[in-house]
Amino acid sequence: MGLFGKIIAKITGSADASAADWDELKTALLAADLGPELSNEVVAAARSVRAGSATEAITKALTSSLCNESREISRSISGPTVLLIVGVNGTGKTTSAAKLAAALASDDSTVLLAAADTFRAAAVDQLRTWGERLDIDVVHGADNADPASVAFDAAQQVIARNMDYLIIDTAGRLHTKNDLMAELGKVKRVVEKILPVQEVLLVIDATTGQNGLTQAKIFTESVDVTGIIVTKLDGSARGGIALAIERSLGIPIKWVGTGESVNDFARFDPAAYIQALL
């Protein structure tokens, strides 16, 4: 319970709150990276809600910012389910790919990982190390191989071996690099020649500021993002940007990462997330 808790303790019953209280509340929302637009919106919504307390009003307003899309990983109707992991550099894609593989494998499913980050030095090794730890096979190519070809190989293998899931880890790329975004589009298209890509999961670092919105928008334009993974929520950042993305683009948050170990990964829990925002 931080500053927010104090404010809420102060505002007893939303009707009694003063303008200064609401201002202070908005400040706290801004500090959680919700952004000026969503912060204004949430405060306005909370003020209009006739709730028993301000806590309730704010919770309601924040909850209504969430979208109604399913937060489950959607399974392919027949054949293996392919998941593509994308995002800007350093958000934790490789770690998330490994954690997700472990989470899916624990349901008695068979999972294959593909190391399509052929750009960053030693990224392939990083995923292979995870693969060894988790006892999950990792498909990889030669250094600087075409990522689309690695992904395609992996898709062929997952079919041949009759496995349940294929998780494709891709290289981090800034959304401002058109050529790299085009490369990502190619990875998806090439895989889709033999298997539908069921989910494209965008990894967002909880410390990301308002630039996260632009990231999500541009990644969606090029590979049609179907879900968000929020990472590093164990730090001091509250990850409000994820809510801003969900609100503005209607892409649901599906998983959250909260640490470096493989178990620090969980399905997104809206109530807990909003609780933590407060």
Binding site: L30, T208, G209, S236, A237
Partner: peptide, 28 residues
């Protein structure tokens, strides 16, 4: 990371009070 949000303040303070630093490098 140049893309960091409001947490920049808390994190920078935590590092300043913790290990301390003499300069900043902005990446990305």
């Amino acid at each position: 990371d140049a893309m960091i949000g409001q947490d920049a303040v808390r994190t920078a303070r935590a590092f300043l009070d913790g290990v301390g630093f003499d300069g900043v490098v902005l990446t990305k």
